[in-house]
């Protein structure tokens, strides 16, 4: 079996080549092999959104993605949207509005929100709610997350 073929893709702007067996899940590859641990494992079955990454810019469940199928793609994790110093506007808004509590779902929400604002820079409240309706948060009741995304869209923290 061609179990350890090399996989090449771009991770957070940098080319990556790594051995990868066919059954490797992207989340496992990121966390275990590439040590990008900002991507969280909440349920492993696509039902929480903690493992969200951007696949060619689109929020995607890394726990339900076969790693081999990202060959040649651009994968962006939470590490990839974080500037070298400071915070991105979405991140700054999450901090300012207390949109994190335990923080475990936060990377997924930040990526979903980042992609939303890129596609739709001025979303309505309903559009924000709809965009995050696949990310579970058990701490905040979503209220402050929605506020933070709305604030980021308006250009303030």
């Amino acid at each position: 079996m061609s179990s350890q073929e090399l996989l090449s893709f771009r991770l957070n702007g940098q080319p990556v080549t790594t051995p990868c067996e066919p059954a490797r899940i992207l989340l496992d590859l990121l966390r275990e092999d590439l040590e990008e641990t900002g991507t969280k494992r909440g349920c492993d079955l696509g039902t929480c959104g903690c493992c969200t990454v951007l696949l060619d810019g689109r929020p995607t469940l890394s726990c339900l993605s076969l790693a081999r199928l990202v060959e040649g793609c651009e994968v962006t994790t939470i590490e990839g949207v974080s500037p070298p110093q400071g915070l991105s506007p979405v991140q700054a808004a999450f901090v300012a509005h207390g949109a994190t509590q335990c923080g475990f779902c936060t990377p997924g929400f930040v990526l979903t929100a980042t992609a939303l604002l890129k596609e739709n820079p001025h979303p309505s409240r309903e559009e924000i709610v709809r965009a995050i309706s696949g990310n579970l948060c058990r701490c905040t009741g979503y209220t402050k997350i929605i506020e933070a995304i709305d604030a980021a869209a308006r250009g303030g923290p």
Binding site: S82, L87, Q91, V95, G98, T100, G103, P107
Partner: peptide, 21 residues
């Protein structure tokens, strides 16, 4: 006041370390 969480910047960047990390 409204005091943002001190570990907020670590959590929004994925840098906060949970056990499995």
């Amino acid at each position: 006041q409204r005091i943002p969480y001190v570990e907020g910047p670590l959590k929004v960047t994925g840098r906060a370390e949970y056990t499995d990390d």
